[in-house]
């Protein structure tokens, strides 16, 4: 069922954005999605309830809850190749993407709450998209084991993480193109596509989800974040908009 968390009006007004929402949401069992709310019969008025909001389900805690230590080693090594660190901007690891991935896989996304996973499960054509029986969390688990197994059998190293960076890149390209075939019922291309997409999600999504640390990825490209009003800037063509990025919890230095 959809649990709408209680939201104090005052919190909404602070700074014009929802400072404090994420902290409130963390305590509530927010259902990601829309299935299973109780049936309602609505007549005579808009059934709005004061002080409720379907606030976002931010990430909490620290450390890994889904990844095993072995899996975490793979994820950190691979994310560092998908988005390497340098002076232009943070790498995926520096932006805390592995933590983001862990929390995503531990939650509704990982469970496949928005995936149809019923059978039968023929492989299908590329145009038919994702056709695995695995939920995303299951796919990561199976794929990481299969990749490390492939490395051991073919590349003379114990695990992916132990390969040199250039060899890691070569293997990732092989997964991307589908040239590398994996065991364990894992479609390498499907896994790589999901892993890359999720990595970019962790890099660029609001920091409440655990990645995009200090909004570093937004700073790198110049995206101001959850900024709500650009009316004064619409016709100021070609000018640099000077707003530093802001997330749902505000930004460093804000008193909330």
């Amino acid at each position: 069922m959809v649990t709408k968390v209680n939201l104090r009006r005052r919190q909404l007004l602070v700074g014009g954005v929802a400072a404090g929402i994420a902290g409130t949401a963390a305590a509530a069992a927010v259902h990601d999605g829309e299935l299973g709310a109780p049936p309602q019969t609505i007549r005579g008025a808009v059934p709005w309830k004061e002080g409720t909001a379907d606030a976002p389900p931010g990430a909490t805690g620290s450390g890994y809850t889904y990844f095993t230590p072995v899996e975490a080693t793979f994820i950190e090594a691979a994310v560092a190749r998908l988005i390497p660190n340098d002076e232009v901007g943070p790498g995926g690891v520096e932006a805390n993407v592995p933590f983001f991935l862990d929390r995503q896989l531990a939650g509704p996304f990982g469970r496949g709450d928005h995936y149809y996973l019923g059978g039968p499960w023929p492989k299908g054509t590329p145009e038919q998209g994702y056709q695995s029986r695995f939920s995303p969390a299951q796919l990561y688990r199976a794929a990481i084991a299969a990749i490390d197994q492939y490395v051991g059998a073919n590349l003379g190293a114990a695990t992916f993480a132990k390969l040199a960076a250039a060899d890691q890149d070569k293997l990732l390209k092989g997964l991307e193109s589908g040239e590398v075939k994996l065991d364990g019922g894992v479609d390498a291309k499907s896994f790589f596509a999901m892993f890359l997409q999720n990595t970019k999600e962790g890099y660029f999504s609001d920091p409440i989800y655990g990645g995009n640390k200090d909004m570093g990825a937004w700073k790198m490209i110049g995206f101001p974040g959850a900024h709500y009003n650009y009316k004064d800037w619409v016709t100021r063509h070609g000018e640099r908009v000077p707003f530093p990025p802001v997330g749902f919890k505000g930004r460093p230095g804000w008193e909330t």
């Binding site: 709408k4 909404l12 014009g16 954005v17 929802a18 929402i21 990601d32 999605g33 829309e34 299935l35 709310a37 309602q40 609505i42 808009v46 059934p47 709005w48 309830k49 409720t52 909001a53 379907d54 606030a55 976002p56 389900p57 509704p108 996304f109 496949g112 709450d113 928005h114 995936y115 149809y116 996973l117 997409q197 999600e201 660029f204 999504s205 609001d206 989800y209 959850a226 900024h227 709500y228 749902f248």
Partner: peptide
């Protein structure tokens, strides 16, 4: 049921991950 202040208030409506990529307002195909 969905209404503006409850389901997509300005304080959290601009959430690319949740709405675009996690399909929060879309049909759940599960």
């Amino acid at each position: 049921w969905r209404d503006t202040p409850t389901d997509f208030a300005t304080g959290f409506a601009q959430d690319e991950l949740r709405y675009m990529w996690r399909h929060h307002l879309f049909q759940n195909v599960s």
